[in-house]
């Protein structure tokens, strides 16, 4: 897995550059040595968290924990809060350490073939792109992949997915524009079974989570899929745009009513966005982030490791110098 490690760190570093700049630099500026802990400092920490879209409730909780800990430990210097802050954010991200990440994120459970993954989300978050990238990653780890183009609503969604399938070098099952997405999903699984494929990736149409009829359609999709394989979908990934604010919580709530969400994909993290809302999602909704999209290239999808993420966020280097660098892993 040496390849993966190297690839992960360098990409993660690039992708998180903005997050770094926004969160860590700011914390570095705020929490410098020999600054006294006072209301102003606490206000600045709170502001930094809120500006990163961590949200009111989780920010409040983090602040409260810091204050409690501070009272216990009798801290007086701002730099002493740094480790505590990292601990709190890791805690929130991992839901108190409940979320673990496997060594090979693209390994599949035995006896489940094909392994069916449904990708859902609101419009414009990058579901189709994500499906393309996932397909690429699974194929690269030696799996046979079939993509189902169940976004039959958006004009030209099929051709976009076709391009991705071609780039990833995998098969794609599609029907005409406006076809029943449940039928596409059914066809895809059926074809995957016939071809003895390992993974089925189903792209769905973007839908706003408050459109009852569209949510019902999603529910129907899972129902129809279960006719072929009773335990499908094995994974339901909710794609979220990293620039989304507190509405992400609402999306997560509504979508989980119609499909059992097993994880989140945070897309477009290479923008100016900070994606702080994932901290709130992990903390308040118990939803782990599985992948992050850090660029527009096909290999720009990264498995998400909360430990690694907070380490990257709060790496010692960030606090020492102006420039943040992660040492490249030099694996054989």
């Amino acid at each position: 897995m040496g390849f993966f490690d190297k690839f992960k760190i360098s990409r993660l570093k690039e992708g998180l550059a903005k997050t770094q700049e926004n969160l860590v630099r700011k914390f570095t500026r705020i929490l410098h040595r020999s600054r006294k802990i006072d209301d102003e400092l606490m206000g600045e920490i709170e502001e930094t968290l809120l500006l990163a879209d961590v949200g009111f409730a989780t920010t409040e909780q983090i602040m409260k924990n810091i204050v409690d800990e501070m009272a216990k430990m009798h801290w007086t210097d701002a730099s002493e809060l740094r480790d505590e802050l990292r601990k709190e954010i890791t805690k929130a991200l991992t839901h108190n350490g409940e979320f673990k990440i496997s060594d090979d994120p693209f390994a599949l459970p035995a006896h489940t073939k094909p392994y069916v993954i449904l990708v859902i989300g609101v419009n414009g978050v990058g579901k189709t792109t994500t499906v393309g990238k996932l397909a690429y990653n699974y194929r690269n780890s030696g799996k046979k992949v079939v993509i189902g183009a169940a976004d039959t609503f958006r004009a030209a969604a099929n051709s976009q997915l076709e391009v991705w399938a071609e780039r990833a070098g995998v098969d794609i099952i599609q029907q005409h524009h406006g076809a029943d997405p449940s039928a596409v999903a059914y066809d895809t699984i059926q074809s995957a079974i016939a071809k003895n494929a390992d993974v089925v990736l189903i792209d769905t149409a973007g839908r706003l989570h408050n459109k009852t009829h569209l949510m019902a359609e999603l529910e129907k999709m899972t129902r129809v899929m279960r006719k072929l394989m009773p335990d499908t979908p094995h994974e339901v990934l909710l794609a979220l745009d990293a620039t989304t604010g507190q509405n992400a919580l609402q999306q997560a709530k509504e979508f989980s009513k119609v499909a059992p969400i097993t994880g989140l994909i945070l897309t477009k993290l290479d923008g100016t966005a900070k994606g702080g809302v994932v901290i709130a999602l992990a903390n308040e909704m118990k939803m782990p982030v599985k992948y992050i999209g850090v660029g527009e290239q096909i290999d720009d999808l990264q498995p998400f490791d909360p430990q690694e993420f907070s380490k990257a966020l709060f790496g010692e280097e960030a606090f020492r110098g102006e420039e943040y660098t992660v040492e490249e892993e030099t694996q054989a």
């Binding site: 500006l51 879209d53 620039t243 989304t244 604010g245 509405n247 100016t272």
Partner: peptide, 15 residues
């Protein structure tokens, strides 16, 4: 601008 954008909306708009 997407109405669901979070805190970053103003930065994007400004850029």
């Amino acid at each position: 601008c997407d109405a669901m954008t979070g805190q970053d909306a103003v930065n994007t708009a400004k850029t």
